[in-house]
Design a protein around this nucleic acid. Structure first.
Lengths: 197, 197
DNA sequence: CGAAGTAGAGAACGATCGTTCTCTCTCTGT
DNA sequence: ACAGAGAGAGAACGATCGTTCTCTACTTCG
């Protein structure tokens, strides 16, 4: 379909621009030019800017989910799968285009003024937490581990974004190793309780 | 001085409004009305909106630093001081006005378009990390502990903001206990290496 | 009492935003 | 070949932004 190809190009371009400059800083005209679409076609595909924003958030959610899941599936063993989250973050942070989590950013920019955006960001984070909880459950971890790892992942994202360096991923990963070890050590009962580093 | 009283009221009002609605969503006229100052006086005190934004960031930095330091000083013992960070977060998250870290938010909103804001946010986070490193050093912890705790604190802030609930503070605190125990366990050599929970 | 300087209120300005409209041109069907 | 529908380019519109200007009224000093 031609129509959905145009839609896709608009959303992909908006994603790039919104990520690079923030949502409110990118006007419809700039988006129109960058996507190479006429203003008429743009408003033919989307009724308003806010609908484009929501489409971008959906795209980001899929991209995040797919990328994370691919990284996790590639890892073998439940502990490795939990740590794969942080390897995925490390790869992301090293991209030139990385400017922080798009949901945190859009929530910061529009969450107070747009209930849709706030709600979508909340659901995205919730789905991530549930995903981590699933992995932690597979590893036989007690329920408190998953929120701890989720918080580490969130912190790594904002730290890396503001510092402009990817090292937070490795630091979060090391912390995750300790937390996983502490939470699972009991279960893997014969192993000595904790080995630092 | 009358002058600095007006300045203070402008900055305090701007801080509230920017926190509640985002920086770009609050116009100079709204700020003028809320602060009860004439537009002339406003521009007499500050040459531009961006200078108000920077003044707000300075105010936030002081407020954060003072509040955190007070909470930490109140705790006794190096481990308790490290954990006091998360108790301070818990208190903050429970305030109605809490809408996430003002530096993360302003970075997300303006970081890409305003180098001043991006740089100030970076320095603020850097100073927090150094502060944590100082506390961790006092506790005799190895150098990797401080970044881990800083990342936890960052993650708790964004998680609590987006979820709209303060529970992330407690979860981060529990994780911090585990990380501190793991990092210091060796040093407090006679104590069993790790005790979960 | 009267003149002059100051401060407040808000109108005004240029820029830019999201959105719509107009005008022109190009295809297509008969 | 020609009428008509559709698309592209961008002008136009109303709203709002940050910022400046104007006008009025009050205070203060000779």
């Amino acid at each position: 379909m031609d129509i959905s190809e145009v839609r896709h190009r608009i959303v992909a371009t908006a994603d790039e621009l919104y990520n690079a400059k923030g949502i409110q800083s990118v006007g419809m005209d700039e988006l129109r030019t960058a996507a190479g679409v006429s203003l008429k076609k743009l408003y033919q595909e989307f009724p308003s800017k806010s609908s484009i924003v929501m489409a971008v958030l959906e795209r980001r959610h899929e991209s995040w989910t797919d990328g994370l899941d691919a990284a996790v599936r590639q890892a073998s063993g439940p502990r490795a799968k939990l740590l794969a989250i942080f390897d995925y973050l490390a790869g992301w942070f090293c991209q030139d285009s990385f400017r922080g989590c798009g949901f945190i950013n859009s929530f910061a920019e529009l969450g107070a003024v747009s209930p849709e955006v706030a709600e979508y960001a909340r659901k995205h984070k919730e789905s991530f937490q549930e995903y981590v909880a699933g992995l932690a459950g597979d590893a036989g971890a007690p329920p408190y581990l998953a929120p701890q790892l989720s918080i580490l992942a969130e912190g790594a994202q904002t730290t890396a974004a503001i510092a402009g360096s990817p090292e937070a991923a490795g630091q979060a990963r090391q912390a995750a190793e300790v937390l996983i070890q502490a939470a699972l050590g009991r279960v893997a009962s014969t192993v000595p309780a904790a080995v630092v580093q």
